[in-house]
Computed example of a mutant assay.
Amino acid sequence: MEKTNFIDYIRVFCKSGHGGAGSRHFARTKFNPKAGPDGGDGGRGGHIILRGNAQLWTLLHLRYYKNVIASDGQGGDKNLCTGADGQDIIIEVPLGTVAFDEETGEKEIEILHDGQQEIWLKGGRGGLGNKHFATATNQAPEYAQPGEDGVEGWKYLELKVLADVGLVGFPNAGKSTLLSVITAAKPKIADYAFTTITPQLGMVPYRDNRSFCIADLPGIIEGAAEGKGLGHRFLRHIERNSVLLFLIPADSQDHRKEFEILLNELEEYNPEMLQKDFVIAVSKSDMLDDELKAAIRAEMPSEYPLVFISSVLQQGLTELKDLLWQTLNAGK
């Protein structure tokens, strides 16, 4: 597999800071050698925090950051002095990052906005000093709380690409060619399967200086929902797309069957994907005459909008952009 700077999965061991212990100190002054307890509280252990950064597009910077360990809080001191809190660790991640616990598989945090800051692992609370435990019947408590333990465990981060439109199709359906024509993106294009092995993003310029984001995603194969081909590594990126653009090549042996296989793989992976808006584009349509176009249109599902395009000859692209824009903004 070719080397890539696009990293969308990171596994990491995390440990937040231990809380500092409370102090058991007793005040002794020149004129009052038994002034009573004055032990301060311990400081809080350091948090591990995730923060969204719109300038990042990959988890590459975390690739060798395998252990994230926050510092412990300091113990309390005399004169009711509270110990210093442990230093927080802030991990900057691209928008669309989801944090999971490896043991339970539970989703813990989702970062969707620039500057969004969420505590991932809380630091342990500092213990109370002995001053808090003084009572009328126990004016010299020898007890102070220890700090609470931090949280530790194996976690993982997944990046799910944020794009308005996701290109869905079998390998070699013409997705990369389309992206290169309607955006300024320069994806790798070649005549073999899985030319695209990582998501490629591009901005599509539209009328009146408007634009929308489109993602060329690695091709689906039958069985992708069970992990075949690029499997789950690809399918999770589709979850965030508002509209899915199904690209069916004109030279396909069975256009309807190809569309149904793609649809089935999405449903097997996550049935909620079928609630998205779908648009169908028949690529390489420069090889079709009007009679063949009519035949293809008749065999495809009538409930989804369909357009014929040719990326090489740039035919039907304006109609496709209009259709995608209308679908994206329907109901707004």
Results as ranks from 00 to 15, higher is better:
residue 325 W to A: 14
residue 20 G to F: 05
residue 171 P to N: 13
residue 48 I to N: 05
residue 296 I to S: 03
residue 37 P to W: 03
residue 112 L to P: 00
residue 236 R to N: 07
residue 57 W to S: 11
residue 24 R to S: 10
residue 302 S to E: 07
residue 107 K to T: 15
residue 206 Y to K: 02
residue 179 L to E: 06
residue 252 S to G: 11
residue 89 I to N: 00
residue 164 D to A: 13
residue 50 L to S: 09
residue 92 E to I: 03
residue 213 C to R: 15
residue 15 K to L: 14
residue 216 D to Q: 14
residue 297 R to L: 07
residue 256 R to D: 07
residue 214 I to M: 14
residue 226 E to Y: 14
residue 319 E to F: 07
residue 288 L to K: 00
residue 307 V to K: 01
residue 187 P to Q: 09
residue 267 E to Q: 14
residue 182 I to W: 09
residue 130 N to Q: 04
residue 299 E to R: 04
residue 28 R to N: 12
residue 185 A to V: 13
residue 224 A to L: 02
residue 260 E to P: 02
residue 252 S to A: 15
residue 304 Y to K: 02
residue 10 I to P: 01
residue 96 G to W: 07
residue 284 K to A: 05
residue 119 I to Q: 04
residue 314 Q to L: 03
residue 146 P to H: 01
residue 191 D to Y: 08
residue 77 D to P: 01
residue 278 F to G: 06
residue 102 E to D: 10
residue 325 W to F: 15
residue 202 G to L: 10
residue 27 A to S: 13
residue 280 I to Q: 05
residue 274 L to T: 14
residue 9 Y to K: 15
residue 130 N to D: 10
residue 246 F to P: 08
residue 84 A to Y: 00
residue 318 T to G: 12
residue 140 A to P: 00
residue 262 L to K: 07
residue 249 P to S: 12
residue 79 N to A: 02
residue 115 G to F: 01
residue 85 D to V: 09
residue 313 L to P: 00
residue 326 Q to H: 05
residue 283 S to G: 12
residue 284 K to G: 04
residue 177 T to E: 06
residue 224 A to V: 06
residue 234 F to K: 04
residue 78 K to Q: 05
residue 203 M to V: 15
residue 123 G to V: 10
residue 52 G to Y: 00
residue 326 Q to Y: 02
residue 18 H to M: 12
residue 67 N to M: 03
residue 10 I to V: 15
residue 103 E to Y: 05
residue 315 Q to M: 12
residue 280 I to G: 02
residue 284 K to H: 03
residue 150 G to M: 04
residue 80 L to C: 00
residue 145 Q to C: 15
residue 289 D to C: 13
residue 153 G to L: 10
residue 274 L to Y: 08
residue 24 R to Y: 00
residue 139 Q to E: 13
residue 224 A to I: 08
residue 29 T to C: 03
residue 256 R to W: 09
residue 59 L to N: 03
residue 266 L to V: 04
residue 310 S to W: 11
residue 186 K to R: 15
residue 91 I to N: 00
residue 38 D to W: 05
residue 73 G to R: 02
residue 230 L to N: 12
residue 105 G to T: 03
residue 153 G to I: 14
residue 172 N to V: 14
residue 233 R to K: 15
residue 207 R to K: 15
residue 157 L to E: 05
residue 60 L to C: 01
residue 270 N to Q: 08
residue 259 F to I: 02
residue 265 E to T: 08
residue 181 V to Q: 11
residue 164 D to K: 11
residue 237 H to M: 06
residue 114 D to L: 01
residue 260 E to H: 09
residue 134 A to N: 10
residue 303 E to K: 04
residue 307 V to Q: 06
residue 75 G to I: 03
residue 323 L to T: 08
residue 45 G to Q: 01
residue 5 N to M: 07
residue 195 T to F: 08
residue 165 V to S: 09
residue 273 M to G: 02
residue 255 H to R: 09
residue 96 G to S: 11
residue 103 E to K: 03
residue 53 N to L: 09
residue 255 H to T: 11
residue 18 H to Y: 13
residue 161 V to M: 11
residue 124 G to F: 11
residue 64 Y to G: 00
residue 329 N to K: 10
residue 110 E to W: 01
residue 86 G to N: 01
residue 157 L to P: 08
residue 305 P to Y: 06
